[in-house]
Design a protein around this nucleic acid. Structure first.
Lengths: 221, 221
DNA sequence: CAAGCTATCAAGAAATTGGTTGACTAAGCG
DNA sequence: CGCTTAGTCAACCAATTTCTTGATAGCTTG
């Protein structure tokens, strides 16, 4: 029967997943993969790390079962392993907000001045009635990999030149990677400066997607 | 606005929580605290670590915001910080089962031969109709700290001497700390050997408690 | 207020992790 | 079939983590 050894092995196996969450660099990669699958090279460039180091971290994530790996010609494309993982990552991130004042402080500094937010339900209502238009300000690859239905893609970098595409008589709602992504904040500030009425959606594509899939209640242990 | 520095700080803050999950010893402490609050000394003895080391790990958990600390006379009692943390721990554990074959293997070796399990809904039905009695086989301190309504406490160590207290004409359902705790498995084997009909509940007190609290759906990010 | 617990602090040795650089391998292309 | 590009492997050093042992601090009790 169960020796102490075996019990240790059990916790050790779980700690493998914990370890995967223990490095900021890996979390950054995980966060990027929550947006869209990518190749090692893309991830390395986007996160500003060396390729070998990125590869090493990806292998740690792979060992923990967080990501899948697919060869595509000369490159290798990594993707989140599944909803379970996404859910776990979001839970961790949310919990950290609740628990650690530190995160709040860091987030505030990163996001800049707070801008008005709008929730999911209100957004749906206002889009239906035509009172609001929804803009996805993430890079277009991420939009292509998946986006909120009814949104149009205007990456933040192009927003300034494409302002004319947006109505002045309706509210513009911007969203990006998630509540801690600065893109939507920046977009709202620009839109306001152009005289438009604008708010940011208080969540991003990953959260929306997870919530949409059949409102799954927590898969009670 | 957000410099790269600040973004790093954000992931770093989240990684603090990840790090707390990265050590098997800490997970063991966390698991024990999911059952009942305890003093440093109790934790050290139960988990078989030195007191200073236990204290050190508890401080890491405290820094991550996972546990609370209350002075009680000459000792200090630690407890899980909240539902959020419990939920996160269970989610991690469950995910690890899904992802890592390794965990399954370790669990199987630890739990010994599989015994029949019963689910929450069926248990409730059968208890109401008087077809089953529920036994909590955890140590009595843990029972005292909280247990499933209608259960009676018979710690595994005492089961052999107290078999007479249990009916022979009804099914006996045993539960303990969770699906990976060996107590209920062992209890069911003993009960079967005594000629009784017995099954184990497929979850433990922490899972039950979390599920009972208002069936909270996942606090969508 | 001294004695006896309990918990924490502190310092150091051993092991693990995170990052770099350079060599190697696998797939596409002329 | 050699050349190029993308990713991984391997070796190495620096930094962190983990555990141990011994000293210290906080409370209770006689």
């Amino acid at each position: 029967m169960g020796s102490a050894r075996s019990k240790d092995a059990l916790f050790e196996a779980i700690a493998v997943m914990g370890k995967a969450f223990a490095s900021p660099r890996r979390l950054e990669l995980l966060d990027l993969l929550a947006q869209a699958p990518r190749t090692v090279d893309e991830l390395a460039r986007t996160s500003g790390q060396s390729t070998p180091n990125t590869s090493q971290h990806l292998q740690a994530l792979h060992a923990a079962g967080f990501v899948t790996r697919v060869r595509e010609g000369t490159s290798v494309r990594y993707a989140l392993a599944g909803e379970e993982v996404l859910s776990l990552w979001l839970a961790l991130r949310d919990a950290s907000v609740v628990q650690l004042a530190e995160v709040e402080r860091a987030a505030r500094e990163y996001l800049g001045e707070e801008v008005d937010a709008i929730g999911r339900d209100e957004l749906i209502t206002r889009m239906r009635s035509g009172e609001a238009v929804l803009v996805d300000v993430r890079p277009s690859e991420e939009f292509d990999a998946g986006h909120i239905e009814g949104a149009r893609s205007i990456p933040l970098a192009e927003l300034e030149h494409r302002l004319a595409e947006l109505p002045t008589d309706r509210e513009v709602v911007a969203y990006c990677r998630g509540p801690f992504c600065a893109y939507a904040h920046a977009a709202v500030r620009q839109l306001r400066a152009s005289g438009r009425s604008a708010r940011r959606l208080d969540e991003g594509w990953p959260e929306w997607r997870l919530a949409s899939r059949a409102e799954t209640p927590r898969k009670a242990a």
